[in-house]
Write a protein that binds this DNA or RNA. Structure first.
Lengths: 225, 225
DNA sequence: CCCCTAAGATACGAGACTGTATCTAACGGC
DNA sequence: GCCGTTAGATACAGTCTCGTATCTTAGGGG
């Protein structure tokens, strides 16, 4: 239906056909269906173009709708951003594998985190930097605010299981050493802005973490008596 | 250079008294003096408004000059950014202490880096995330661009010296392990957005790095009191 | 089947920034 | 002291985005 009826119903061509899958008739989305589509588009725009490219223009185009539709729901850009973030950040906790092997648990968890969070970490850093700059806060503060402060970290869980199995001795370990793999993963992701190669994951576990824990496979360190 | 020599005397505004006349006489900067002032202004703009606010417009205004002056020197925004970063990064190399002790070298270097670079690392990551996304580059690539790519890293130097002294065995070591302290320092700075406490530095060296290297003199890990 | 709500298209004025062109005037070299 | 270089001011066309104001029309409710 492209007849120019009367006034300004001209087709400017730039706005392409919406991927509704229904070529036959003009399917007009409404309510939550429309909202889902918009937030989905917003998420992709954010991932691909970052916060500076996160404009009403771009989101509307990606969602195959028009800016007024967005303004009706989210009058401020922050509203749209917040809605997008809460929608996609709530889901997807990183799974902690329980394989019965310390090494397999560690590698498996890093793999999951690498796959699931790599571009989220970059995303968050890109767009929250402005927020950090303005408020003087930081990643770790945000993480403490969002997550439960007293919940054990993934690697604390992994180590605890290994101790239960008798795979590791039941000695106190510094938080620094226990959480080292996740810190290194995060560091590498931040530095390279992309997911790590598999070799880096095994390298972190086999060359750094396991030797430090004195686990089998690594070289036990006698230290100073 | 001017093809139309005869006519063309268009009226482009009459009283062209430069607004910088507030500094007294009409002092017109030239050459390196001007360039220094511009890069200085660019640095401040970057610090205060981040990469999104790092525009020719803003830098020119801050330097009390005009955009054409900037375009003559740095035709691309990247050129201006790179020049600004290079200028302020290379001004302060991090000193590598040579104390004759592996541990003291490591702790000393981390201390220097912590004091001298904490602000800079934070700043760069905070303000340049957008740049990285736009250009598809990353922090590590920028580092390679600014520094000499083949120069040994500080910790490679420190380890090499320790090997020469016979303090460490001459065995191959992975880059991951050798550079671990700097990576951890950087990670912590990024996460907390401020310089590390002294305890974190000794923790990194004593609880992580020295045990991994199998060096004597590492303090016993917690658990062997 | 009609009617009202809202999706979707389009327009418009404002503002910021980009590159470039052109003019002037100051500064330094000769 | 002349003269070439260039800083500095200004203009301009183009692009992008914003926020809002219409207008048409699809789709659901009554």
């Amino acid at each position: 239906m492209n007849p120019k009826s009367g006034g300004g119903a001209e087709n400017h061509g730039a706005a392409g056909a919406r991927p509704t899958g229904r070529r036959g008739g003009p399917t007009r989305r409404r309510g939550s269906e429309l909202e889902d589509a918009i937030l989905d588009a917003a998420w992709h725009v954010l991932v691909e173009h970052g916060y500076p490219g996160f404009t009403y223009e771009a989101v509307a185009a990606r969602a195959s709708t028009s800016r007024p539709v967005l303004y009706r729901r989210w009058p401020q850009r922050d509203d749209l951003l917040l809605a997008t973030l809460t929608r996609f950040l709530e889901a997807q906790p990183i799974a902690i594998p329980d394989t019965g092997s310390l090494r397999a648990d560690a590698v498996g968890f890093l793999r999951n985190a690498n796959a699931g969070r790599a571009h989220m970490i970059t995303l968050i850093s890109v767009q929250l930097m402005d927020y950090f700059r303005d408020t003087g806060t930081s990643f770790s503060q945000l993480r403490d605010t969002l997550g439960a402060p007293n919940r054990p970290t993934p690697f604390e869980t992994i180590v605890a299981r290994a101790v239960e199995r008798g795979e590791l001795p039941d000695v106190p370990r510094s938080s620094r050493v226990v959480n080292l793999p996740f810190d290194l993963l995060r560091h590498d992701i931040l530095m390279t802005m992309r997911a790590l190669p598999e070799e880096s994951i095994t390298e972190i576990v086999d060359e750094v973490w396991l030797p430090l824990l004195g686990a089998p496979g690594g070289r036990p360190q006698p230290g100073s008596p």
